[in-house]
Amino acid sequence: MKTEIINVTKSYGKKRVLTGVNITAESGSCVGIIGKNGSGKSTLFSVLSGIARKEEGDFLYGGESLFSSKKKRRELLGFVPQTPPLMEELSAKDNLSLWYTKDALELSLDEGVLRMLGVGDFLKTEVRKMSGGMKKRLSICCAVAHDPRLLILDEPSASLDIEGKEKIAEYLTLFKEKGGTVLLATHDSLEFEICDKTYLLKDGKAEEFSYDRSSFKEMFR
């Protein structure tokens, strides 16, 4: 299944943030999107996940418009926001119970994403007592509870330790292997390693480029 972002535009007032973004991704691949702060990465993800309205353009999965069908978008798309979508006063289990049925939770703890990301180790811990890495792993588990085919992550490794980053990279690799598509906004070199294609978001447009460490530093000058 091919994922296509076609000529997506978005403005806030008079400011044009996205002036026609075009991105394509094959099933089983990961697309990395980089750009300076304020370049429009989060805006693009907000539009794709239905939080903000697009002005023009389309978002297709297997030829079907996800902008036209909200139901389809909710079914196919998982979105991990930059800040953890969690209730701080409640435990990991309570937070997961919003997204998982009891059976699905047990199954996932046995052989699913919860096991893979090691959430079972801190299931009864209150979110406010968790580290940044634990919160991020829990956030991913919440976002993928409905087993989406397309995963959008906004800087998943921001402020995480190496162990946390590695666990997330491991999961994303497996997600790809199972035929899922990943769209990833990142500045992290470890995450770039799992990307099959990278785009630079600049002046409201996405340009494809080949990632290497030297050109990566050059781009942000």
Binding site: I51, F79, V80, P81, T83, P85, L86, A143
Partner: peptide
């Protein structure tokens, strides 16, 4: 202080 949850809830309908 942060709004991850309302954003995720909105994206999930």
């Amino acid at each position: 202080s942060h709004a991850g949850l309302p954003v995720l809830l909105k994206s999930r309908g």
